[in-house]
Nucleic acid binder design. Structure first.
Lengths: 103, 103
DNA sequence: TGAAAAAATGTCAATTTCGACATATATTCA
DNA sequence: TGAATATATGTCGAAATTGACATTTTTTCA
């Protein structure tokens, strides 16, 4: 990134500093993890409130009970894509999903 | 699904034709695709408004220019995970992300 | 104009995520 | 209780996604 571009970013409130880069990254990673955990927890609550077993949900999304368990456990090796597909399978509305986004 | 929306999806590489003409995409599948396209479009707008090149963003998320291009093009072979990581790298707020969710 | 920068497109080996399976542990409830 | 049901955990080859690279096409702007 050149000097001119860096100045433009900093003028609009960005921090591009050297040490800061490391901190920014970990902050993004933290936010990313928190988002996944929020989706996981909401998925579990939603499934349970619908009185569905993990096996039931697994069938609905053409997956397996073990993968649903891992989703709900917040396993790092589960994508947001699969979490979203699961929530959509449970007819989660746009408004509900919006409410799941962490601060 | 109306014709216009279908043409948008097909233009981005999503397979809506032939087989799905009678094996219609399920509502969930359609919603999933539309979500990804919405995130793609918003990412591109956000990057451009920040006057960043695709190469700039690629560096910020430790990826490559070509992958950023594919993200913004709504390529089906790009995960929501990567789109979200990119949006987080651009400091997209919870409120802004919520606004990206399709109806 | 046209050269430089930016973006788009295609490919590929490496990595990640996948469904499936086996099995252990936990919960339910007659 | 204890058997049936539900959930958690670990593993594996297959499939999907990745960053990187090469190249082409488009856009920018002097």
């Amino acid at each position: 990134m050149n000097k001119e571009k860096q100045m433009k970013l900093e003028a609009s409130g960005w921090k591009i500093g050297s040490v800061n880069e490391f901190l920014e990254l970990s902050q993004e990673e933290t936010e990313f993890i928190e988002l996944k955990l929020s989706l996981s927890q909401n998925l579990k609550e939603r499934r349970q409130s619908l009185r569905l077993t993990q096996k039931d949900l697994a069938r609905m999304i053409h997956s397996s009970q073990s993968r649903v368990a891992k989703m709900e456990a917040g396993d790092p090796a589960v994508s947001i894509d699969l979490l979203v597909k699961s929530l959509l399978a449970l007819k989660t509305s746009k408004k509900e999903v919006a409410g799941m986004l962490p601060h």
